[in-house]
Amino acid sequence: MKALGIVRKLDELGRVVVPKEVRDSQGWRHGQPLEMFMNDDSLVIRPYGKEEEKQIVLEELNQIKNELSKESQETIQKVIDYVEK
């Protein structure tokens, strides 16, 4: 885990602001669903369902790719390679 050197206080309702720099670096936007996990004394926050959704899209792209012409298969493979990064 990487220390960011950022400290925030909980407000009276238990809210904490995620700094803009962190939101921007993670691609999080207003309304982004996030999920939280507890690990001993740590809290982990990540986009909700992002990995699962990504795997579903990759599976669908692979199925579509097999039904296309060779040229189209190469194009779809480039998209798959990009998404897998």
Rank of each mutant, 00 (worst) to 15 (best):
R8F: 02
L34D: 05
G14N: 13
I76F: 03
E67M: 13
G49H: 05
W28Y: 02
V18Q: 07
I80G: 01
M38S: 11
Q77A: 07
L43N: 02
M1E: 12
N62P: 00
I6S: 04
G14Q: 13
V57I: 15
S42T: 15
L58W: 00
L43K: 11
Q77M: 05
V44R: 12
L4M: 11
L4V: 05
E59G: 12
S72V: 04
E35M: 15
D11E: 06
P19K: 06
G31A: 11
Y48Q: 15
S25R: 10
L61N: 01
V79A: 08
E60H: 13
W28N: 02
K50R: 12
V57H: 10
M36D: 00
H30R: 11
K20D: 09
E21H: 08
V79Y: 02
K70R: 12
V57T: 07
P47S: 09
P19Q: 09
K54Y: 02
I56K: 15
Q77E: 02
P33R: 15
N62S: 05
W28A: 00
P19S: 11
V44Y: 08
S69A: 10
N39R: 13
V16F: 15
E59W: 03
S42H: 09
I76T: 00
Q26N: 12
D11R: 06
T75M: 10
P47R: 03
V7N: 12
E84Y: 00
M36I: 10
L61T: 00
R29T: 08
K85R: 15
K54V: 00
L43W: 07
V57Q: 12
M1S: 08
V44M: 11
L68H: 01
F37D: 06
E59Q: 09
K65H: 03
L34T: 11
K50V: 11
E21W: 01
G49V: 02
G14L: 08
W28H: 02
D24Y: 03
E59R: 14
Q32G: 01
